[in-house]
Design a protein around this nucleic acid. Structure first.
Lengths: 344, 344
DNA sequence: CTGAAAGCGCTTACAG
DNA sequence: CTGAAAGCGCTTACAG
């Protein structure tokens, strides 16, 4: 039953079976129209009979342009469900196009990012989908300068033109904040992600714009950020609630931060939304199982992933197209964590 | 700045720079002790100077045994945080060993699983880490019969000896159920995952064993399962709570099921744990942000991933070792969803 | 329309 | 200790 790898059928096997040269078999495989119908048929039969499957490694080494691609996907944090959606989007498209995806999870660590990029390059991936650590990410800049097809997700690069697919962060943040205002909140805090990341800045801009639209003061003490993780959420919510006049509502910049803030609120036995309201960036599948159900800004991660890989295929096909910028809308999912006190 | 791929340094470049043959460069790269110290030095210098990086595709095509591996990882559902932990475990080990991982997410779909396996085979991965769809998964059986190194996670194969790494499902389920019993519950329901999966059966066995230990009747009407997703959780919780004498406690078989059950409970405005208690298999990072915080069986996904890839490396090195079976313990994380009513 | 040959970037016996 | 050569499994000009 068990047969050794060396006896796997190759072009030679098929060629012998069909009584043609390996060149002809290769042509059939690549649907070269030059091959005569009859020849094609007998080759196809031989392929069937032998159970031949092309060796992609050999193909990758030999060919410069290929239909079956290998895509490198660099994700900042796979524990963030938003990125899981992105992965699913990329992956589904890839496999339905006979391609595969090599995933690296670099946890916002520039050194690890570099390591992954090097490995993926050595594996000759056909292109990269990447979320830059920040606007001036040198690793990714170099990748682009070296001529590799790259599409950025979630955030772009400041110094280089590049395809990017991301959410409308500013508008999303604006809508969330406005929702809070319309529910009667005037003291609205914003727990942000890493202030160095463009995404964070865009969300702050949206938050600020909403306050200004309603002539509410922008209080810098109410805008706090360290990094985008659970711990920061816990700590910053604590700081905020310890303020002499604590906020009546908190807008959290991503789902990990939301969770952290929730933990602090729970620990203090504060009632949501009556004692403190909360709205989060990132909708998650468990948001409606929360008690009360969480109002959140939904990002379309799956669509972002799909768009990104589509764009990447296009860039691979035509390296000189002018870079595109896809902004994907967000949706405010109104549930029960913001309460309702009519504006007087 | 931008240089074309064709001018990437290769063995030839380095060899010319160092004034040796490409064979010698290759030897240095593979730390062949035969190379004279002086030669080695000048080659290493040339490698530095040229910025040479080996082409793994060529290496993979040529070599039969390699240190820098490519691992295929087949995951049933990437939206399940348990598997995300597994992925992280595998991935961290892989990259720290200069290896890369190709990920496929097949959603319990045997056809998709087959497609992914074929692609990964064509990419010449060095080994597979896989969660079989069921005990007699033909795709995986074939993979093993064809001589590929395979390690199973989460569940094994009934007809074939294979390395497997999984949680102690039976004990985990036992502990969860016992906890409920000790909290005074006699009417305990179990919402299970897909009954065809061994994991599900093991958890049912643990649940049953706990009831029996305390001389509680095992009521088949209280054990219900469709598949392991959110929707099933919603629906089965509904059925259960509609029973003439509804259960006072529910043990859910995985985190997606828990979420679904939670949604039903929330919708009915039932108070946890007073009106209905709940304990779930799978601890998740948001469990303690739930209100009340969820008591859950923690699986060590990260460790499972690590163990699996370690085992895979060993299997690749020695294909004939006798298959091992790693059972990783689980921990009951007691929080607030089970309440406490002393047994009279 | 088809085949022989070169070559993708490596590794590894085989000589010397 | 090192080099020339064969070969991994393919693709693709080049002839015919």
């Amino acid at each position: 039953m068990k047969y050794s790898k060396s006896s796997l059928p190759d072009l030679r096997t098929v060629a012998d079976l069909a009584g043609v040269s390996i060149a002809t078999v290769s042509r059939v495989l690549n649907s070269d129209p030059a091959v005569k119908g009859k020849t094609r048929l007998s080759v196809q039969e031989a392929i069937q009979k032998s159970g031949y499957r092309p060796n992609r490694v050999a193909q990758r080494l030999r060919r410069t342009t290929r239909s079956k691609k290998l895509i490198g996907l660099l994700i900042p944090d796979i524990r963030n469900p938003f990125y899981v959606d992105v992965i699913r989007g990329v992956e589904e498209y890839a496999y339905s196009h006979d391609s595969a995806v090599l995933i690296g999870n670099f946890s916002q660590d520039s050194g690890k990012e570099k390591l992954y990029i090097d490995i993926l390059r050595s594996e000759s991936v056909d292109g990269f989908i990447v979320a830059p650590t920040h606007g001036k990410d040198k690793n990714i800049e170099q990748l682009i300068l070296d001529g590799h097809p790259v599409v950025c997700i979630d955030r772009g690069l400041t110094d280089l033109q590049v395809d990017v697919v991301k959410s409308d962060n500013e508008k999303g943040a604006f809508t969330a904040t406005e929702h809070l205002i319309k529910n009667g909140h005037h003291q609205i805090a914003h727990i942000t992600g890493d202030p160095a990341i463009p995404t964070t800045q865009e969300r702050i801009a949206g938050y600020t714009a909403a306050l200004q639209k309603y002539d509410l003061p922008v209080n810098p003490a109410l805008i706090r950020g360290i990094v985008s993780d659970f711990k920061s959420g816990v700590q910053l919510a604590e700081e905020l609630l310890n303020l002499p006049t604590p906020p009546t509502a908190i807008f959290t910049g991503n789902n990990l931060l939301t969770l952290g803030a929730l933990e602090t609120i729970l620990k203090r036995n504060l009632k949501i939304p009556d004692e403190v309201a909360i709205v989060g960036f990132d909708d998650v599948y468990w948001a409606s199982s929360l008690n009360p159900a969480l109002t959140a800004v939904q990002q379309h991660g799956f669509e972002i992933g799909q768009r990104a890989i589509e764009l990447l295929y296009q860039r691979i096909a035509s390296p000189d197209r002018v870079p595109a910028n896809f902004i994907i809308k967000t949706d405010l999912m109104v549930r029960k964590s913001c309460g309702y006190k009519p504006l007087n």
